[in-house]
Amino acid sequence: MGTVTRGTTNPNRLRRMDRWIAATHGAELRRAADPVAVDLGYGAAPWTAVELLHRLRTVAPHARVVGVEIDPARVAAAEPYTRPGLAFRHGGFEIPLSRRPLLIRAANVLRQYDEAEVAAVWQRLCARLAPASEHSHGGLLVEGTCDEIGRRHVWVALGPQGPRTVTFATRLGSLERPSDLAERLPKALIHRNVPGEPVHAFLRDFDRAWAAAAPYASYGARQRWMRAVRDLAADWPVADGPARWRQGEVTVRWEALAPRG
């Protein structure tokens, strides 16, 4: 179920997303007896699935990754990369696995869809996640968009019950202002970057905080970013702390940026 994507992919493109997943969801993966992750729509080459397995196993040695692609030719091309812990399946948003995964990563998949289609896709994918329990927050869906070499990336994290957070991540040396990330907003938000919408107000305030933090630029772009995020957190529900800010990231609660109406 779904539409074949352009298939554009590059090695190391999703490193920022992968590092964030390992840091924030690693404990859930470690606790699971059989932690399964899905790389949905990995594209014309399986690099991102191979890399996801490597990065998840640094925090959860028993993690498994299944690359899922709707194009049968791409699945056939990926078969030589099959190894213990890494497999490839033909399928789409139905997620053709016998068990519910603890992670679904869908990067640059919904970019070609209409905004009106996003909510239904999110709902379908969240329904396939491992459910929450007494000892687990359940599975995680990470859906977002990045540029061709992974310098700028914005993603939404969703649990079984729906959206939780939005993360902005960038290579700080390439950033002129935080609103440069607007071009990489996921489909649910990219058309909402207009006056009157929360995401527009957030990026406006972020640019102002960045400008006010200009004196910190003499200590490097990282220190300027961290100061800007610290000031931004006075008015916006920032959900992470300095350890993530140092990576060129900031995560905000979804409800603060959710589209109006």
Score class of each variant (00 low, 15 high):
T5N: 12
T8G: 12
R13W: 07
R16Y: 02
D18P: 00
G26E: 02
G26S: 14
R30E: 13
A32G: 12
A33E: 09
V36P: 11
Y42E: 00
Y42Q: 02
A45E: 14
V50H: 00
E51H: 01
H54W: 03
R55D: 10
R55T: 06
T58N: 07
H62N: 11
H62F: 03
V68F: 05
A73P: 05
V75R: 13
E79M: 06
Y81I: 00
P84F: 14
A87H: 04
F93D: 02
I95R: 06
I95S: 04
L97A: 07
N108Y: 08
D114G: 13
A119W: 01
A120E: 14
R124C: 09
C126N: 07
A127H: 10
R128W: 13
A132F: 08
H135K: 09
L140D: 00
C146P: 04
E148I: 14
V154C: 15
G159K: 11
G159C: 03
P160C: 13
P160T: 07
R164V: 00
T165I: 00
F168L: 13
A169C: 11
G173L: 08
S174D: 12
L175I: 11
L175K: 04
E176N: 10
R177K: 14
D180A: 15
R184W: 15
L189Y: 14
H191S: 05
H191P: 01
R192L: 08
G196K: 11
P198S: 10
P198R: 07
A201M: 05
F206I: 03
R208K: 05
A209H: 02
W210C: 02
A213H: 02
Y216T: 00
A217F: 02
A217W: 00
Q223C: 07
W225L: 02
W225C: 01
M226N: 09
M226P: 11
R227G: 11
D231N: 08
D231H: 05
D235K: 09
A239I: 01
A239Q: 13
G241I: 06
A243S: 13
R244C: 09
R244V: 01
V250P: 06
V250W: 08
V252T: 05
W254S: 02
W254L: 11
E255Y: 13
A256Y: 11
A258V: 06
P259S: 06
P259N: 07
